[in-house]
Design a protein around this nucleic acid. Structure first.
Ligand SMILES: [Zn+2]
Ligand SMILES: [Zn+2]
Ligand SMILES: [Zn+2]
Ligand SMILES: [Zn+2]
Lengths: 135, 135
DNA sequence: GCACCTTTTGACAACGGTTCTCATTCCGGC
DNA sequence: GCCGGAATGAGAACCGTTGTCAAAAGGTGC
């Protein structure tokens, strides 16, 4: 067999547009919508099509390179993230976000699921409030 | 002054439509979308406008009479719920849902938020997996 | 039962975020 | 430089949700 199906490189060209989106995410520590990112890029002179922004963000989310959070109105918001499992403490006022970890919570979630016979368990957990600056 | 502004009855007439929606929710233990509920009502002979279904569900959500959960695609799904604070263990296959409580998790969330100086704290937490029937 | 007034309803249009389409452009390898 | 597949982007389509507003329904006092 040729080397083409050797699974390694799962097609992902480093184009100008993808670099721009990744770069833009790197500059913020809070969650942003696809359209906000599109606007920011445009303002910064980087013209990237809205479709491409959506596609890129989806791909990054699939690759666990960004976290996705649904706003109350259902809009998806993205944020660069570390590669270890974590959750978020998000300010309802300014959006300021802190990554938090809680081993005890992880164990609790797993235990509860097992007690009910659930398998392939995952979970979502976010904490909201007003940060010191917004209080 | 008349009794009209005596705050007590916060205007909520028990109409046929509202009863039908509430009754429909009572018949399921899993999360349903507004449109699913609309279809179910129609199939059951209860003709209720889609707008009314949306309005009623929103009102019930505001009154904490139903839980709202955003599906991965952003669609809102509703479920009747008990009146105490709780979270959910949801089957990704059939939607079967179990309400769960975890006092330790509640304390952890509050503590983490306080450590970062956050006030007016709330949180969301859901656990997903495959139930015994779907495994 | 009957006015009277307010709330509620529902068909339909409008909205907004997201996805799809497809002709064009880009990239990497030869 | 050429070729072929991947990527892009302008615009249309999609779809859940919300807004509009005239008509219908509840409640109240009579
Ligand atoms: Zn803040
Ligand atoms: Zn976790
Ligand atoms: Zn199941
Ligand atoms: Zn809780």
């Amino acid at each position: 067999m040729t080397s083409t199906d050797a699974g390694a490189a799962r097609t992902a060209r480093p184009t100008r547009q993808r670099r721009a989106v990744a770069e833009c995410l790197r500059r913020f520590d809070d969650f942003r919508s696809a359209q906000e990112i599109h606007d920011l890029l445009r303002q910064g002179g980087d013209n990237v099509g809205l479709s491409t922004v959506y596609r890129t963000l989806q791909a990054m989310a699939d690759a666990d390179e960004v976290d996705v959070l649904r706003a109350e109105d259902g809009e998806a918001r993205y944020r660069r993230c570390s590669d270890t499992h974590h959750h978020h403490l998000v300010c309802r006022g300014c959006g300021h976000t802190v990554e938090v970890e809680g081993p005890a919570v992880e164990r609790w979630a797993t235990k509860v699921a097992e007690e009910h016979g659930f398998a392939e368990v995952s979970h979502t957990l976010e904490i909201f409030g007003h940060c010191p600056d917004c209080a």
